[in-house]
């Protein structure tokens, strides 16, 4: 555990305590609710989301656009727009409550202990600085290495993410690189200070399938060799399935099902998860007919009574439309599910 981690703790801990924390949850989100405010009203975007990521564990969040998965990830590091803020709930990083941390202390964790990769590789890099400037900034800031050491580390990082000609790439600007190369650089920046947790928000959505396969391979290797925990967010079941051990399914701003990957893929309970898996399988395996799910994703702030998925669900009963189901432990087997009809 890095020395800074201890400094940042609210209560000074002794060495024994530290090892204990390592065994505990790395990131713990408790009952997180996020709202967006404008002049007229406040809209709830994420409601009562809880999950934990343990050391070296991988967690995937899947859901359609507008279901609040990115907002959840962004609010961990307070990267959301100024009008979007946490209403209720807490985010714990070890013993530190991230949601109550001051800006300056958050900056010490952000980028050092938690790294983040964004969706658009071309826009997440600064166009007016060279790759080397951007890659060495977090290393200089957080680790305080000397110039030759920084250079060496840069080269090593570039090799880690599979860039063939590191010296040349370091001198170039983002516009000179392809999308796949930019995403590799973004990954290199995110892991530059050996973070314990890497948050990847749709890391391959903007990329081609062949490049996507390479990036997924790189991420997989990195989390194994560096023993990082990974929180990956995507709308692509294939991407989530290839990287994560545990899967959280979100719909309409809340968690509808949580389970291990194999359970989700083979024996999911919630009708929405089933539909997602089925469409993914049909597309990947080449079915002649696709099953259709009628309707659209609910917009934030609309229809607060009853189950969010009820209007689109084939199994919905009157109770589904009237009462909002809680997220409960499944009676048979592991995992939690939010549905009146399957427990």
């Amino acid at each position: 555990m890095p020395a800074d981690f201890q400094k940042n703790m609210i209560f000074p801990q002794n060495a024994d305590k530290t090892t204990e924390i390592e065994m505990q949850d790395l990131l713990r989100i408790e009952n997180l609710s996020v709202v967006a405010t404008d002049k007229k009203r406040t809209t709830q975007i994420v409601s009562e989301v809880s999950f934990t990521v343990r050391n070296g564990e991988t967690m995937g969040i899947i859901g359609e656009s507008g279901c609040g998965k990115s907002i959840t990830a962004m609010s961990i590091l307070k990267l959301t727009e100024p009008n979007i803020h946490i209403d209720k709930g807490h985010i714990y990083w070890g013993n530190i409550c991230l949601s109550e941390l001051s800006e300056s202390r958050l900056r010490k964790i952000c980028g050092k202990e938690i790294g983040m990769i964004f969706q658009e590789p071309m826009t997440s890099l600064n166009p007016v600085f060279t790759i080397k400037q951007q890659l060495s900034a977090p290393i200089r800031l957080h680790l305080g290495l000397s110039k030759p050491d920084i250079h060496q580390r840069c080269i090593r990082l570039m090799e880690d993410v599979g860039i063939k000609d590191p010296e040349k790439t370091l001198k170039s600007y983002p516009h000179e690189l392809s999308g796949g190369m930019c995403q590799r650089v973004a990954i290199a920046i995110a892991i530059s200070c050996d973070p314990q947790l890497l948050i990847a928000d749709e890391p391959t959505t903007a990329l081609d399938v062949t490049i996507q396969a390479q990036i997924l391979g790189i991420l997989k290797n990195l989390i194994r060799t560096n023993q990082m925990a990974l929180l990956i967010i995507s709308h692509d079941m294939g991407v989530i399935a290839s990287l994560s051990e545990n899967i959280t399914v979100m719909y309409g701003g809340e968690i509808v099902e949580q389970n291990t990957r194999d359970n989700i893929i083979k024996q999911s309970s919630h009708p929405y998860t089933k539909k997602l898996i089925r469409s993914a399988e049909e597309l990947y395996d080449g079915a002649d007919e696709l099953t259709l799910v009628r309707g659209n994703v609910p917009r934030p702030g609309e229809n607060r009574t009853g189950c969010r998925f009820a209007p689109r669900c084939d199994l919905s009963t009157q109770r589904c439309h009237a009462e909002h189901p809680p997220l409960v432990q499944k009676e048979r087997g592991k995992g939690t599910v939010r549905c009146w009809n399957c427990r």
Binding site: V209, K220, S242, E281
Partner: peptide, 27 residues
């Protein structure tokens, strides 16, 4: 190569790990 890069749900574990070297070579 295009086919090999398609993600699948069935053998998700084998997918990314096996393809990283093969992919770059074939590419």
């Amino acid at each position: 190569l295009l086919f090999a890069s398609l993600p699948t749900l069935k053998n998700a574990d084998a997918f990314a790990a096996a393809h990283i070297q093969k992919d770059t070579e074939t590419c």
